[in-house]
């Protein structure tokens, strides 16, 4: 296994340098076993493209998104202000994150509180690397395979980013097979608005099951997404699928790593 090259912003500072970007790992990316694999996949891409990036490590803390969506504006703003203090003390200009919730909060809700940064979702940043000829994806092991894509609400509807992830699926030469409800009409996985952390209210079925049924009706056997929470919800929702119905839920970063065998 190739050793990942990871440095904290603090280490950069001690060397008297600063990285090109801050990789905001997020809570899921730091602690959730499934999401950690996404974090590693993205770092492999960054390493392979020789991007100088730093992480905050123990200086990183929750953006406050789940608290804000639960209604706890106090806790959100306390998190936001202390995060902003740290980000500004390191003079951070550009942030890339693999979590659309962190992405949305950092991009849209931090500026009013004194934290203005250029914020990218990792799929956007990888596209930028492609455009700047700093990274290349040509074909690979997914060539001709059908892949479907689940739009995370906080990347899609919330921030109108529908193309960046789709473009990357095209780049690995896979055939994109859209779900019936996609792009601005995409169905939520059920985790947003702090639902990830609670039982759902009484109803007829779980939202991730509703989405999983839609996935079952799609001929693709790989579901790509760009959010650690969507990933968890869809993995749970589709785990009962048997035999030829079995699907694999993958982050776009993981697809690229596998396609390129990084």
């Amino acid at each position: 296994m190739i050793e990942l090259k990871i440095k904290t912003i603090e280490e950069f500072q001690n060397e008297g340098t600063s990285p090109e970007i801050l990789f905001w790992v997020g809570c899921a990316g730091s602690f959730d076993d499934r999401a950690k694999r996404i974090t590693k996949a993205f770092v492999k891409i960054l390493n392979s493209a020789n991007i100088s990036f730093g992480v905050l490590g123990k200086d990183e803390s929750c953006t406050g998104d789940p608290a804000k969506r639960a209604g706890n504006e106090f806790l959100f703003q306390m998190q936001a202000m202390s995060n902003i203090e740290i980000l500004n003390s390191f003079d951070i200009k550009t942030i890339v994150t693999t979590c659309p919730h962190c992405f949305n909060t950092l991009k849209n809700e931090y500026p009013d509180l004194g934290g203005s940064y250029e914020v990218y979702h990792h799929t956007q940043f990888i596209n930028k690397l492609l455009d700047d000829n700093r990274f290349s994806i040509e074909g690979g092991s997914y060539k001709g395979k059908k892949i479907t894509y689940h739009d995370p609400c906080f990347l899609g509807r919330a921030n109108n980013e529908y193309n960046a992830p789709r473009n990357l699926i095209k780049k690995i030469d896979a055939e994109l097979s859209e779900l019936k409800r996609c792009k601005s009409k995409a169905l939520c996985c059920g985790a947003g608005g702090a639902q990830m952390f609670k039982e759902s209210e009484k109803g007829e079925k779980e939202i991730n099951i509703e989405r999983a049924e839609e996935i079952k009706n799609n001929s693709a056997k790989i579901v790509a997404t760009g959010c650690p929470f969507c990933n968890t919800m869809l993995t749970d929702g589709t785990k009962s699928f048997e035999n030829e119905d079995k699907v694999e839920v993958m982050d776009i970063a993981e697809l690229i790593v596998k396609a390129k065998d990084l």
Binding site: I6, S30, F31, L56, G57, E60, S61, C62, F197
Partner: peptide, 11 residues
């Protein structure tokens, strides 16, 4: 973090 993990273990 929304889960009971230690901030020191973020890396």
């Amino acid at each position: 973090a929304p889960w009971p993990y230690n901030q020191q273990d973020r890396l």
